[in-house]
């Protein structure tokens, strides 16, 4: 029983670590700022989520698990806020955005908010 739990934790930790590294690689392989935010979002969701899930298995039903849930919740609330703020700031700042398809902007046009 305990052995199976340990194995599950190891698998989740290593999978999370791999997703983290993939995000880090994406941070270097993608050529533009806006694309890199997507790579960062991989580490923030899959990487952090899987690793914390693996630790939760070790924590069992205890305060430790509750705290891990809190860490995950805070991360899931803060990372989209940061990503949105960054992208909107960059767009408002006029950082060029490479596009293949673009819907026409809304009625008050420029997103320089």
């Amino acid at each position: 029983m305990n052995g199976a739990l340990d194995i599950a934790t190891a698998v989740l930790l290593i999978a999370g670590g791999l997703f983290c590294i993939v995000g880090g690689i994406g941070l270097h392989r993608f050529s533009e700022f806006y694309q890199r935010t997507h790579a960062a979002s991989v580490t923030d969701t899959a990487g952090a989520g899987l690793m914390l899930l693996g630790l939760m298995l070790q924590g069992g039903l205890s305060m430790v698990t509750l705290k891990l849930v809190l860490v995950l919740a805070f991360l899931l609330f803060s990372s989209p806020a940061i990503a949105h703020a960054l992208v909107k700031a960059a767009h408002g700042h006029g950082l060029a955005l490479e596009l293949e398809i673009e819907d026409e902007p809304g009625r008050d046009g420029d997103a320089a908010g």
């Binding site: 997507h38 979002s41 969701t45 989209p80 949105h84 992208v87 809304g106 997103a111 908010g113």
Partner: peptide, 20 residues
Amino acid sequence: NFITLTPGTITLDLRDDELL
């Protein structure tokens, strides 16, 4: 936030019941 959290898509703006 759901859209932003999903890798591959990011919300740039929200106005008039429409997301960019």
